[in-house]
Structures are given as C-alpha cells and as structure tokens.
C-alpha cells in the first residue's frame, strides 16, 4: 500500500468547491494518525494561484497541480488519464473526491484504471480501531446506511457528499508545497468532443430534474403571487412547480403540475406553499428528501408528511424567507 491521502480539488469556474475544503479538513486528522501527508490535486489548464493556499489553509500538506492545454474543460478521458497516470506514479493510499457530477464520473473511471476500491456519496470517513480506513454511505436512497471497508484494495477511493462534513476554520498561515505536474496526453486520448455547454437558469430546469422545487397551491390565491415563489427560487436555484388546484385555476401551466396526474418529482428539497397535501399531490413528490410545508391551516395533511412546517400566512413567510436565504447564501 502506498502513502499519501489525496483529495481531488475541484474548481467551479475559478473558485475551489467547498466540498474540497470539507474533505481536506476532515481527512487531515486521519492522515495525522496514520502519519501520512494530505495532498490536494488540481487538474486543469491553468489553476488559479490562490487555490493552493486555500487548500493549505484547510489542511493540505502538499498541492499537486496537473496542468495541460487539453484539460481546459472537464472530460472523463482527459482528466482520468492525467490523474490515473499520476496515481500510478505516486501510489497514494487514499484518493478522495467530492461526490459532485465531476467527482462521481472521474472517481469511477480512475478507480477502474488503477484498480482501486471505490465508495460513492459517502457521508463519513474514519479509521477503525485497527487503523483501517472506513467510510459510511447511504444506500437504497437513504433507507439504509452502511459502513464500507476496503480489505483488498491496493488504493482506496471515495467520493464524499457535499455539505455533510464540517470544515474546520481555515488557517491562512499554513502553507503547502506546490508541485506542478505535466501529464502526457496524446491526441487520441480524449475521444469525446465537447460541442457546447448550455447554462440553464434554475427556472428552466425541468421539474423532474430539479434539485430544489418550490410549489404553490390553492393558497397562492392568484397567478401574480407566484412571482413571490419565483423570487425565492432565484435565490436558491430552485424550480417553481404547482399543485393541480393552481394549474386548474390557470395560475400555472400543466407542465408545472406536480402530483399523481402531473409530474412525479424527487428533489432534495421540496417546499410546498399553500398546498394542503392531498394523497394525489403526495404521490407526485413523496420521495423528496426534505419536505417543507408552509400553510395557514394546521389541519392540512401536508403537515403529517413534511419534515419542517410553518403554520402561518405564506404571504408573510415567503418574502422574509427569501431575504433570509439571500443572507445565508451571501455568507457562502
């Protein structure tokens, strides 16, 4: 088994994703126990100067920067080749990724290339009593959690769910050694061509694919009031949906309808505003991870199905919440 605990450092445009810091600061104590180094690994065309220091502040001993013109945009082929070649060369013991779209794709491909064991979407990392690295992860859509071990793996890999591990406060005084690496990428290595990247405004994301949905029902009273929900949606990157009653009333179109006879959705967060929560509606959103209800009727069935509820006038709650969420977002 090799040495070194690596964290694939992922960039969103030019900023390092928060999940990278979450992993770095949580893997550091483990590395310290095992007496190994924590390394952040960047892959790209040009990595911003500040990125390495940020990683250091969260616990990285070392920062590898793998740069190549062919790595300007993420491709599985390019990134996996660059990273796998370097892993083969350096033989780290552990490589961790954020369980993001890129992280999940890359980790699977690299693991296949380097014969690693891989656990996806983990919510905890730790060392057991005998000093073996374990992870905990949900399975069956969260109906079961499992501790995963890697008894036969020459290299251990895991992707870590964002927003779960708590990052330690950054220490800007810490510095890391930075090492630039130039990968070998031949012309035929990247077989996939990126034709176009389409940025979709959150409002345009289809309900069935949305991560967050804010839905309005009969309690919205009129079409114009949906603007209120749209404002909140803009703040948190949500898509606005509607109950059948709201669609019937003509406030929203049929394509916005959530429920038994509309769209069946399962976002991470579903906020029901002025929706009583009949079984017909529930059948369309019951598998949402977190359900929030805002309704002035305390007897509304939605309150027996939600995780968080506010019994109050939605017209008073929603605008305030939008402001509060804005503040929280601004805090980063």
């Amino acid at each position: 088994m090799g040495k070194g605990m690596w964290v694939f450092a992922e960039l969103a445009e030019t900023a390092v994703r928060k999940v990278t810091f979450e992993i770095l600061s949580n893997v550091r104590p483990i590395a310290d126990k095992k007496g190994e180094e924590v390394c952040a690994v960047f892959v790209g065309k040009t990595i911003p100067e500040a990125a390495a220091d940020q990683c250091a502040a969260y616990g990285a001993h070392k920062v590898y920067i793998i740069e190549h013109d062919a790595l300007a945009s993420y491709t599985s082929d390019g990134y996996a080749k660059a990273l796998a070649d370097f892993i083969n060369k350096q033989q780290p013991s552990i490589v961790l990724f954020g369980a993001t779209v890129v992280g999940k794709d890359l980790s699977a491909k690299v693991a296949a290339k380097v014969n690693a064991g891989l656990a996806t979407d983990c919510t905890a990392i730790n060392l057991d009593d005998s000093g073996n690295f374990n992870v905990r992860r949900p399975m069956y859509a969260g109906k079961v959690y499992a501790d995963i071990g890697f008894p036969n793996a020459p290299i251990i890999m895991a992707s870590i769910r964002p927003n779960v591990l708590i990052p330690t406060p950054p220490d800007a005084s810490k510095k890391a050694a930075v090492e630039k690496v130039t990968p070998e990428i031949a012309a035929g290595d990247i077989r996939v061509t990126i034709v176009e990247t389409i940025k979709t405004a959150a409002a345009k994301v289809d309900l069935t694919e949305a991560e967050i949905i804010i839905s309005g029902g009969r309690g919205m009273k009129e079409a114009a009031n949906f603007k209120m929900l749209e404002e909140m949606a803009d703040v948190i990157g949500a898509t606005v949906g509607a109950s059948r009653a709201a669609v019937d009333a003509g406030w929203k179109t049929v394509s916005d309808q959530v429920g038994q006879t509309g769209k069946v959705v399962s976002p991470n967060l579903y906020i029901a505003c002025g929706i009583s929560g009949s079984i017909q509606h529930y059948a369309g959103m019951g598998t949402s991870k977190v359900i929030v209800a805002i309704n002035k009727d305390p007897e509304a069935p939605i309150f027996t199905k939600c995780d968080y509820g506010i019994v109050d006038d939605l017209f008073k709650i929603v605008p305030v919440m939008t402001q509060e969420l804005k503040k929280l977002k601004a805090e980063g």
Binding site: Q260, T261, G262, V264, I279, Q280, Y282, A283, G286
Partner: peptide, 19 residues
Amino acid sequence: VEVQAVFKNMENNSNPWGI
C-alpha cells in the same frame, strides 16, 4: 400518459399511488 404510473404503482405496490 398519467395512467402508466398508476399501472406500475398497482403492479409494484398494489395501490394506485405507489405508496
């Protein structure tokens, strides 16, 4: 279209809502 889910729900969970 909305009927397909009902059929599948009845097949898999023996009720139209799929609970």
